[in-house]
């Protein structure tokens, strides 16, 4: 099942306009450079709180962010990618990680509890209790009638209250898109050790359309497009976590590097120059964002 090409239609990238593909890549790129800045700040001990990095997994959030608009967003603890690709300002996240009052929760919540409620974005903060966002997303869809996206991990999928809440969404036909970011890990324990069943099968048996798909962003858009007209629905995305569960360490080379694969695909499609420009622009932007002198000023206070 789990593979970098699972349920990815052949030559799928070609079916999408270049503009959309490049927007998606730009968001992935911006996110990657941001987390490189985070890693550097952790090494330099400017960030002293735990950080939950999503590098390696970001293609799914980038794909979703181009496809679903005006959704209420309920993400989990590992959500730098969701926050940034959906348009959360990088400087507010940086400040949150630094514990500054200009952060997204005045520096009180940190990496695993991101929220943002401005500029037309409604991203509700997590508290770090795994799976808690799933019943909340369902209740928010019930209470508001608005389209809602709920993003959680393969570990969260096992929480008893998670599929109970998905069942409620099915019963009441609530407009929720459930997205499982399946990195095959709950901290360091792989799925096969933890359970014999598939959350996609569970979702299906609850009465909602459900698919497994690798994190190829074009394939994610393709399936999201089909599912989002038929909510509630469930999509399980196979991804590879690049770093430790918490912190900036690396255990082993991930099974695949989606970022590199997307770059290669864009080059194949003739966008070499465009991605060079995006890379360069983003790198410079993030260098300024994480500029040591600027950073150290508020930190000295």
């Amino acid at each position: 099942m789990r593979s970098p090409t699972f349920n990815v239609p052949p030559n799928i990238a070609k079916q999408f306009p270049s503009e959309l593909s490049l927007t998606m890549f730009e968001r992935m790129c911006m996110f990657r450079y941001f987390e490189l800045g985070v890693i550097d700040a952790v090494i330099k001990k400017e960030i002293t709180y735990p950080v939950y990095l999503s590098s390696g997994q970001e293609a799914v959030a980038a794909a979703l962010s181009t496809e679903i608009r005006d959704y209420l967003i309920f993400a989990q603890h590992r959500a730098h990618d969701v926050y940034l690709t959906f348009g959360g300002p990088p400087e507010r996240l940086r400040d949150e990680l630094l514990g500054l009052s200009s952060g997204t929760s005045q520096g009180k919540a940190g990496s695993n509890c991101l929220q943002y409620h401005e500029n037309g974005i409604s991203m509700f903060g997590h508290h770090g209790l795994i799976g808690e966002n799933v019943p909340q997303a369902v209740g928010a869809a019930l209470g508001s009638g608005k389209n809602t996206v709920c993003i959680f991990g393969d570990g969260a999928a096992e929480e008893d209250y998670v599929f109970a809440a998905m069942g409620f969404a099915a019963t009441h036909k609530l407009p929720v898109l459930f997205v499982c970011i399946d990195n095959n890990l709950s901290i360091l324990t792989t799925v096969d050790v933890r359970r014999s069943w598939s959350i996609t099968d569970v979702a299906r048996s609850l009465g909602m359309p459900a698919v497994d798909v690798a994190d190829d962003p074009w394939a994610v858009i393709y399936h999201t497009r089909a599912l989002s007209n038929n909510l509630p629905a469930f999509i399980n995305c196979y991804v590879c976590r690049g770093y430790w569960h918490v912190g900036i360490g690396i255990d082993a080379t991930p099974e695949w590097d989606r970022y590199k694969k997307v770059e290669e695909e864009l080059i194949r499609l003739g966008h070499e120059e465009a991605i060079r420009v995006i890379n360069e622009k983003t790198r410079r932007f993030m260098e300024e964002l994480w500029d040591r002198e600027l950073l150290l000023k508020p930190l000295e206070k």
Binding site: V138, G139, Y161, A164, F168
Partner: peptide
């Protein structure tokens, strides 16, 4: 669904 039920109620509170 006692836990999910409370979570759903909390979600409704989060949207006012």
């Amino acid at each position: 669904t006692e836990v999910a039920g409370a979570g759903i109620a909390v979600g409704a509170a989060m949207v006012g």
